[in-house]
């Protein structure tokens, strides 16, 4: 039931600009390989994120391309202990 992301217009509210939503970044092929190599793991061991997640949709709109299953998204979070913490999520349907 994958709905097509609505194009982000000026009027539409963007989740990414909300203060509680952490920064999401789409990784490219090379970066993906680096991450997997660093943690010596495969994509199926990473935490997941839905393609229908508003943040992914928003990234899709920004990138102007479809984010396919298996792409990795890096998320920067504020952390109480570390200050800044990043996590990776792999896109699933």
């Amino acid at each position: 039931m994958a709905e097509k992301a609505q194009p982000e217009s000026e009027t539409r509210f963007s989740v990414m600009s909300h203060q509680l939503v952490p920064t999401h970044i789409l990784l490219d092929q090379k970066e993906e390989q680096d991450v997997l190599a660093r943690y010596r793991t495969t994509k199926d061991a990473l935490p997941k994120i839905r393609r229908t997640d508003p943040c992914v949709q928003s990234l899709e709109a920004k990138a102007g391309e479809e984010i396919r299953r298996g792409r990795i998204i890096k998320i920067f979070r504020k952390s109480e202990t570390a200050g800044l913490y990043f996590t990776y999520r792999v896109v699933v349907d």
Partner: peptide, 22 residues
């Protein structure tokens, strides 16, 4: 050993234990 938290199937739960690895 790389500081990440994983379960027995190898799924990563946290990339650094406690987010700061301390």
């Amino acid at each position: 050993y790389d500081g990440s938290v994983r379960n027995t199937s190898g799924t990563i739960i946290q990339f650094a234990y406690g987010e700061d690895g301390i």
